[in-house]
Amino acid sequence: MSKVRCHISISLDGYVAGPRQSEEEPLGVGGEGLHDWAIPLAAWRELHDLEGGAVSASTSVFEESTDNIGAAVMGRGMFGPVGRGPWAEDEPWNGWWGDNPPYHYPVFVVTHHPRAAVEMEGGTTFHFVTGGIESALAQAKEAAGGKDVMVWGGGQIVGQYLAAGLLDVLELHVVPILLGGGSRLLDDLGDTDVRLEQVRAVEGDGVAHLKYLVRSSGR
């Protein structure tokens, strides 16, 4: 059975991106440090067409995070650009990842501003959804063809899926840094009845991987 999953790196003070996001620092000031645990891994390097790398306790966790994904959802803040707003026609923005993004499956971007789909190299196509998170998820599930749907972020969109009871699996990669500001993950959940059942904890190099099944009312 397909699942809706989220794997996301988070600082000890609860941020998934640092403050003052810019084109030079897409994850905000200090935010790149959230992924220092993954970048040295051979599995990460292979995904980005690089050779070498390490094998550690984090390897199987990382490999699982990229396995069996048929489609994904992300928020406009993660796709960019900084400032959001209507799409520029003279200089179209196609994400932070260059001509060959690392997804290689359909990605549904939740936005307030309509735009035609953008097909990239390597099998990634960005679809822009103005109908909200449920519409984006329904389209992603159909495109996934029975595989899992990944909610990649950012923090606001993950929180919305969690509060709506639409997330099945949440894995936090907790990194021992303090960002002091930026995009938080678990704000504004309101009075929703969300419960997390911890099913795994793995100690990696510079990170703790905590995996939860999401339990909420009506599920």
Score class of each variant (00 low, 15 high):
residue 139 Q to G: 05
residue 97 W to Q: 04
residue 20 R to K: 14
residue 183 S to T: 15
residue 99 D to G: 09
residue 13 D to F: 03
residue 91 E to V: 13
residue 182 G to M: 06
residue 178 L to I: 15
residue 74 M to H: 05
residue 149 V to D: 11
residue 146 G to V: 12
residue 117 A to Q: 11
residue 5 R to V: 15
residue 116 A to L: 11
residue 98 G to N: 08
residue 148 D to Y: 09
residue 17 A to G: 04
residue 43 A to E: 06
residue 109 V to N: 00
residue 159 G to N: 08
residue 191 D to P: 14
residue 78 M to K: 09
residue 57 A to F: 00
residue 209 H to E: 07
residue 188 D to Y: 14
residue 113 H to G: 05
residue 17 A to T: 05
residue 23 E to F: 11
residue 193 D to R: 11
residue 100 N to I: 09
residue 127 H to G: 02
residue 16 V to P: 03
residue 206 G to L: 03
residue 16 V to I: 13
residue 192 T to V: 14
residue 24 E to V: 15
residue 78 M to G: 00
residue 204 G to C: 01
residue 174 V to M: 12
residue 1 M to N: 07
residue 67 D to G: 01
residue 104 H to F: 00
residue 76 R to C: 02
residue 122 G to N: 09
residue 144 A to H: 05
residue 152 W to S: 07
residue 59 T to H: 02
residue 161 Y to N: 04
residue 126 F to S: 03
residue 3 K to M: 15
residue 187 D to Q: 10
residue 178 L to G: 04
residue 62 F to R: 04
residue 132 G to D: 12
residue 77 G to A: 06
residue 150 M to Q: 13
residue 7 H to M: 11
residue 163 A to Y: 10
residue 127 H to N: 10
residue 23 E to K: 10
residue 44 W to L: 04
residue 63 E to W: 01
residue 152 W to T: 09
residue 181 G to C: 03
residue 193 D to T: 05
